[in-house]
Design a protein around this nucleic acid. Structure first.
Lengths: 197, 197
DNA sequence: GTCTATACACCGATAGAC
DNA sequence: GTCTATCGGTGTATAGAC
């Protein structure tokens, strides 16, 4: 399974090209449907209708491909979060993004992969820190706008929102719903008190 | 990678025996240290000093071994939770169990595996529901004991505790700590208001 | 109970032709 | 850019001896 000393100066395909995106798209689908044990260069190639060799023309190693997959995804999500802060109901939109944008299955797979791929772990940390910073700023601004104070300071509220959104999403996929309605009621109450409408 | 139609009446080793436990212990270590892509019959055998063939004497398939591994773990944790409800500070102990007993990496691996192993998914659902029921009962009892009411009803508090405990554990392992102190302050405040001391 | 030996499939990564 | 062909290695699971 392990192979060292990859040639460092191989001829490579251009990032951002059509095949490059198609491979990452295919990789995400496989990760979602079959898990990372099935995420292989052969399956990616088969799924998008090219030969396996081509995957190694666009990505130096499979680990590189995985890191790039997470990077592309997190950049998109950070962009959406930043755009949400400028809207009429920033907190409501940010909450929606947290709950719906990213599949709980995908998160589990990336977390598991991050334990053994150093480059991915760095990307995950960067994403968590950046998204939390955006959330904290949005929460603080919303509280100030309505002259409210919260018993829990903004950084605490941010981590609370993130963890609950992930847990709800995960359990919903499993078919467990006990306690969900009660939590949603509290969250909706908070949102409408800070962002009327 | 996939092999169907396993012989249904093979001679099998006894569950609960020394080797049986040793194999599950080894499997947990591998899952923690290297992830589920490295969780193979060969590595388990190598780790505990037996030949690969023996793993298939104690477990019909690798999926069976994985389900058994989760089952053994969850039974232990449910037992600890039930015992905690009878102690002097039930909520404090339950919180400690949630935060420390189960590694966030292990959870990620099991969640990822549960997406593709039906039997494991059923075990995970059963564990979540049972542990939540224990928590809800303990929270309700503690509130009643101190004649307190909470804006968030017990089922909501239970899911909140679970999700926050998991998120804190995961981020701590990654080295992210922003917002953690704020959340812990709120939780400790709640705990000491319900369970003085 | 535990072993050797083996079938058969799949994987990462590369060499080098076109 | 995309391909065929290939290396060395790992995986699940079984047959059958001791």
């Amino acid at each position: 399974m392990k192979q060292d000393q990859v040639k460092p100066d191989r001829r490579m395909g251009p990032p951002g090209s059509e095949n490059w995106h198609a491979m990452l798209d295919g990789a995400e689908d496989i990760l979602l449907e079959e898990g990372h044990a099935a995420l292989t260069s052969r399956r990616i190639a088969e799924r998008i209708g090219v030969k396996q060799r081509l995957v190694y023309y666009y990505f130096r190693t499979m680990d590189d491909l995985i890191v790039e997959m997470f990077h592309r995804r997190s950049e998109r999500e950070l962009k959406r979060l930043r755009e949400a802060t400028g809207s009429a109901h920033p907190l409501g939109e940010i909450w929606e993004i947290c709950v719906h944008s990213t599949d709980a299955r995908l998160i589990s797979e990336f977390m598991a992969l991050a334990s053994r791929i150093e480059g991915l772990r760095a990307e995950v940390i960067r994403f968590i820190e950046e998204s939390r910073a955006i959330q904290v700023e949005a929460i603080a601004a919303a509280l100030e706008r309505t002259s409210q104070t919260s018993r829990i300071p903004p950084p605490g509220l941010a981590i609370l929102a993130t963890s609950v959104a992930l847990a709800l999403s995960r359990e919903e996929q499993l078919g467990v719903t006990s306690g969900h309605a009660e939590i949603m009621a509290v969250i909706n109450e908070f949102l409408s008190s800070v962002e009327p409408g």
